[in-house]
Design a protein around this nucleic acid. Structure first.
Lengths: 353, 353
DNA sequence: CTCCGAACGCAAACCGGTTTGTAAGCAAGG
DNA sequence: CCTTGCTTACAAACCGGTTTGCGTTCGGAG
């Protein structure tokens, strides 16, 4: 307070009128006027694209602080810059995986003052294409696509506009982008390893549909893991579900009917595992003593059902974080071949296995 | 196609070079040149702020279609317009209530070509203030605040910037905004009515903390409902939890120890209700024959635990939808007193009550 | 002392729209 | 025939930044 009552006082008085007082937020011209330099110089100080003498730099920065000047978002965008925005396209926001991913993404890009534009494909409105077009218009810096319903074709205008793209899940065929995903093969392997360590030697599996990547990768991983432990994967002990609780129960019924009944069942997701628990209960089998059940995902309900579900947690939040970091890295350096990052899962040991 | 070979041809030829061919997307000048009118006229056709002759309008629109012209987002913003963006601030995105709300909001505002900027307070990064400042900068049209951690003070710059605000939950004291929330009193009343209709005459309640609105409102609603059914609320049968599963179990233990043991317990949320189920199981009581349990929220797990939980569903998605509609309505007509909308919940009848 | 290059700062043009003030064309009224 | 009034379209200024090209100033070398 005291310090302001010296030399700059006269200046601050006169500019105070039209800068702080009357019109809205301060503009670059206000700053320039008050600092006694030109707009150009202020711009250079702020962007650092051209050298400015230390004295001038200081003087300008002080005024910037004083006036609380912030560059106008639209003016910035209009003169060719990008928008400090990343778009996130998710398949289905009501699936808890995606909110966690969104949070991780926000954390990562927030550190660099970027903001997240959200699109939930599952909402139906507006159509994805409209959203992606909007993203181009707003010159987003990057897009994270975590939705199978977005074909390569739709991403092309985006890439053409200079935005970076990161895909979550399996790599795309047509367009090559950075990819981040879970390591489905190892998830299955770790699950099997756990069951084996608990003494189980006769295992079964409830797999997801094999035509999609996580389905087949987890099934393959399971088979390979059995072999690695010196066990033979039995075709009969492989049931297929469609990720739903009901399909899990049905599959479990089949497995429990087998001649060589498995003492442990690896389920490719938690929902099917919960279905398997339903089935076990209705058959009068107790879990885990009669049969152990292990899931994948660690959804909320996994800890709430009883017996609580032992499961392999896929760290959605970290996937989001990594996606954000890949995006930022690409923005700094757009060259180089596409990267693929596998995030580390871990086993959550509860009661069911 | 054929039609293009007449008068405008010469013009379209020369502009075709630098409009469609070389540089990026078409600008308003390109359109003007090709349509043989001025920028001004094109602008008026597009915005409809001044009358334009039907013939000119048609001509311009045809060219707009042909060239796939879209107004530049930044230029639009720079010349004083708002940004076709609404911001959503949520308390904790990993709580399934909020993603559902987000979806509803997207559906509502998407119909008017608005896009959703997301901020998850729970993520910690970036700080809320930074996000809200960013919202002001980007001149968002509106903000939906569904987060208790956002005090009035922080909203002021936003309101000053002309953005509309809708609060989800309880009304604010200082600033008056539109509000949308569930009807907590009636939720409790409907729950009690259901239990009553199942023949229960001795009830208990596991309430949330009474210093927050949904906690006290649900407790009050419960008491009033008892009286409305000619029953006397017993102080002893009122336990208080903190919304967690553990607190629910503890409270249930208390209630089941009572001399006049309740045959039915209304829990102010599902998590505590699941805790109550834990307690009942460990006490060897069967639900619902020995004691009925009823929750509020209808979280995913409600359908997955066993016995599955009868609960009152708070329609988060509809809350989001309504919030979006209130926002749009306010943009059309900023005048009028703040509105408060209560959304309709409904009872989901499962096994536990 | 003169000349040269580097360092520094400025004016003006530009990004792509909107908005205001005004001119031109035309029909109806005095 | 000349206003008057209305419709329609345009040129120019403006929003708030960035970027380019150029003129000054200054220190050091010739």
């Amino acid at each position: 307070m005291e310090e302001m009552d010296d030399a700059p006082e006269a200046t601050s008085r006169q500019t105070g009128l039209d800068a702080a007082g009357s019109k809205g937020p301060a503009t670059i011209s206000d700053v320039a006027a008050r600092a006694g330099v030109s707009k150009t110089t202020v711009s250079h100080v702020l962007s650092g694209r051209r050298p400015v003498s230390e004295a001038t730099r200081r003087k300008v920065m002080r005024v910037v602080e004083e006036m609380g000047f912030q560059q106008n978002f639209f003016a910035l965008g209009l003169s060719g810059r990008r928008s400090q925005t990343v778009a996130l396209v998710v398949q289905d926001l009501t699936n808890p995986f995606y909110p966690a991913l969104a949070r991780g993404l926000q954390q990562a890009v927030g550190k660099r003052d970027h903001v997240v534009l959200l699109a939930d494909v599952g909402a139906g409105t507006p159509p994805i294409e409209a959203f992606l077009n909007e993203a181009v218009q707003r010159r987003v810096d990057g897009v994270v696509v975590a939705a199978v319903d977005v074909p390569d074709r739709m991403l092309e205008p985006l890439l053409a506009s200079g935005a970076r793209v990161v895909t979550v899940g399996s790599p795309r065929h047509g367009t090559s982008t950075d990819v981040v995903s879970s390591d489905d093969g190892r998830i299955a392997a770790d699950a099997v390893a756990h069951l084996y360590s608990q003494g189980h030697r006769t295992m079964g599996v409830i797999s997801g549909p094999v035509r999609v990547a996580p389905g087949s990768a987890r099934l393959d991983g399971y088979r390979q893991a059995l072999r690695d432990h010196g066990l033979r994967p039995l075709r009969a002990a492989e049931a297929v579900g469609d990720w739903t609780r009901e399909s899990g129960a049905k599959a479990m019924n089949l497995l429990m009917d087998l001649e060589r009944r498995p003492t442990a069942v690896f389920c490719a997701n938690d929902l099917m595992a919960i279905g398997a628990l339903d089935s076990a209960r209705s058959l009068g089998l107790s879990v885990p003593s009669d049969v152990a059940v292990l899931g994948v995902d660690d959804i909320d309900a996994a800890g709430l059902v009883s017996p609580s579900l032992t499961t392999v947690r896929v760290p959605a939040q970290e996937i989001g974080r990594v996606a954000g970091e890949l995006l930022l890295a690409r923005m700094d350096d757009p060259t180089g071949t596409p990267r693929r990052v596998l995030v580390q899962h871990h086993l959550v040991h509860r009661e069911s296995a």
